[in-house]
Amino acid sequence: MASRGVASYRTEVWSDWCPGCGDFGILAAMQKAFAELNLDPATTVVVSGIGCSSKTPHFLNVNGVHTLHGRGIAFATGIKLANPNLTVVINGGDGDLLGIGVAHFVALGRRNLDVTVIIHNNQVYGLTKGQASPTLRKGEQVKSLPVPNLQDAVNPIALAIASGYTFVARAYSLWVDHLKEILKAAISHKGSAVIDVLQPCITYNDIYTAEFYKDRLYKLEDDPEWDPVVRDPGEEEEKKATALKKAEEWGTRIPVGVFYVNPLKDTYEDRLAKRNPAYSRENPPAFQSIYSEGSSLVGPEEFRKLFDRFIVKVSRR
């Protein structure tokens, strides 16, 4: 199939984010990554929750499912399981994915379903005018807050590793090409992938600004010794420990890049197919025929065979 240009992944819908919003960088990186991976728009589904970043699907010329606050992962789970041939990318904010939707975030890691999660992490609830999100640190008071935040921050990288994600990375929305490369790796990865994308909220967050990140961010891969990939099951514990330690680094230096990759874990789809060989990508549940000429595939004879244990024949004595 001929490759598709970046432009073909854009819609004519106007992006109504604040000028200078970090979401623009993430959107651009997605369009580029989709183009470079030559994703078929018809079999690609971008799912989102609610919030500024969750408007993303409308700006992408692929299938878009803009769902409920916190529920993007849950919707995506049904989409992927019913048709594992679809490429599924979930977008949500830090409040969406790590606050109201955190149960689904953890559950996805446990399943290792083959989907990609992009956290648009700006430490605030932007669309409701800047309340503290689960990634804003204790004691911090962004300009929209009348008083300092009293709740500790959740660490998305550490939480993802603890939950079982097999591809865990952090990126920065203004480093579009770097993010694009991570996105490509995440989408290509077989299993649950998460990218914690740091993005300035230029309207409500006057702490984590582009200026703040400028001198602090560094790339993990710049260290030639850095190797986040589990190549042998025996390495899992150690690689996780190293990644978790790295995840704690937040101050004068903040790492971006790939923290942890485990390509050895089976995906949920694989686990399902192993338990039930009738479940397969070749014949996904969504596209299975369930009837012929208006009648169910389970006709009188099939019913008897399937439900034999419930059937009692009457014999008069």
Binding site: A74, F75, T77, G78, A82, L86, H104, A286, F287
Partner: peptide
């Protein structure tokens, strides 16, 4: 939510 997702793919959900 996942049932809605599956229904969007055509599976009876």
């Amino acid at each position: 939510s996942s049932v809605i997702g599956a229904a969007l793919t055509g599976a009876r959900s």
